[in-house]
């Protein structure tokens, strides 16, 4: 119910960028140089770490937590801790990295896998270290209700997946936003269903990108499925605990309780597909439902085809 029924009320949307929106950071390396054809090449090390955000603008502030709850300092610490895992455990390799925009907002859309998803940290880490731009990851509200986990998740760049949050980040702040349209349907699927994409939500991600006037950059991730495969699911326990799914993973069978936090060292390959631009005016009240569904399905198809293509080329789960 809109609550602005007063005569003569100011009801305009905030179209101007927010005054305290951080500017996009400078690109660091030329990734297109020396990447012959479709071959996968390990990325060169960045010349320098992402720039320090500097002191906060408000002199009364005491911490560097931004208005989304993200702390750049904690994010940098996480990157430092996660880097060995990224490099030596998952040995993440990117393909088509040049498709990621160096400036301006973009909605990054990827397939989702692993009982406790291992793809989101890998994608965020890769883009932040190589491109020097922050990535905000949209995720379930469920995180917010968890003590400690919810706070940490928010400090390292997580944002609840509310349409208005996505619009603000993409349109007002021109940031990179990562979303998994499959949601928990992707991460909660049985191992036998691996790399078969679920429904891409209700196409809401396309509508937000249209409204914000930014492209969608599809990503296909291979490896996350094998890093924590689900061998058994208990619906009853999930209902009892009020969580989307209760998985029994191969990791738990192999390592016991430690399997909750131990991933198998599957080789990660991430392919960035060409950005999808929508030829529609931004900031519309509503977009054609059929157009939104068509675009969402087209993007889903793109990611699915890329996954099949990458799986065909893959020789080993562990060595790629």
């Amino acid at each position: 119910m809109p609550a602005t029924g007063f005569p003569g009320a100011v009801t305009d949307r905030p179209d101007a960028p927010a005054p305290d929106a951080p500017a996009g950071a400078a690109p660091l390396v030329d990734l297109t140089a020396g990447s012959p054809g479709r071959e996968l090449v390990p990325l060169p090390r960045p010349a320098s770490p992402p720039p320090d955000p500097g002191p906060p603008a408000d002199p009364a502030r005491r911490s560097d937590v931004d208005r989304w709850g993200r702390s750049e300092r904690l994010r940098a610490l996480t990157r430092r801790l996660y880097d060995p895992l990224y490099r030596y455990w998952f040995r993440v390799e990117w393909d088509g990295f040049e498709h990621l925009p160096r400036e301006g907002g973009a909605l990054i859309v990827a397939n989702h896998a692993g009982a406790i998803p291992s793809d989101a940290p890998a994608i965020m880490h890769g883009i932040e270290t190589q491109l020097g731009r922050p990535v905000y990851g949209l995720a379930e509200y469920l995180f917010r209700t968890m003590p400690v986990v919810g706070t940490l998740w928010s400090r390292v760049g997580g944002v609840p997946a509310h349409p208005d949050n996505a619009y603000r980040l993409l349109h007002d702040e021109q940031q990179l936003v990562l979303v998994f349209p499959e949601g928990t349907k992707g991460t909660g699927k049985h191992y036998s269903e691996r790399y078969r994409l679920r429904r891409f939500g209700r196409g809401g991600f396309v509508e937000i990108a249209m409204r914000a006037g930014v492209p969608v950059v599809p990503l296909a991730v291979v490896g996350a499925e094998e890093s924590m495969p689900i061998v058994f699911k208990s619906n009853r326990l999930a209902k009892l605990l009020n969580i989307p799914y209760f998985p029994v993973t191969a990791n738990m069978l192999a390592f016991g309780p430690a399997g909750l936090v131990t991933y198998f060292p599957a080789k990660f390959r991430i392919r960035v597909l060409p950005p999808v631009h929508f030829d529609v005016p931004p900031n519309q009240e509503r977009y054609s439902r059929s157009r939104v569904m068509d675009e969402a399905e087209r993007i889903r198809r793109m990611v699915q085809d890329a996954l099949y293509d990458m799986l065909r080329a893959r020789r080993s789960i562990w060595f790629g």
């Binding site: 609550a3 007063f6 100011v10 305290d20 502030r61 005491r62 911490s63 937590v65 709850g69």
Partner: peptide, 19 residues
């Protein structure tokens, strides 16, 4: 005329308020 939110610019975590 109309509805308006009135709040200071920005926001901070509760821990920072305590700090």
């Amino acid at each position: 005329p109309g509805i308006y939110n009135v709040a200071g610019d920005g926001c901070q975590p509760w821990s920072e308020v305590c700090a």
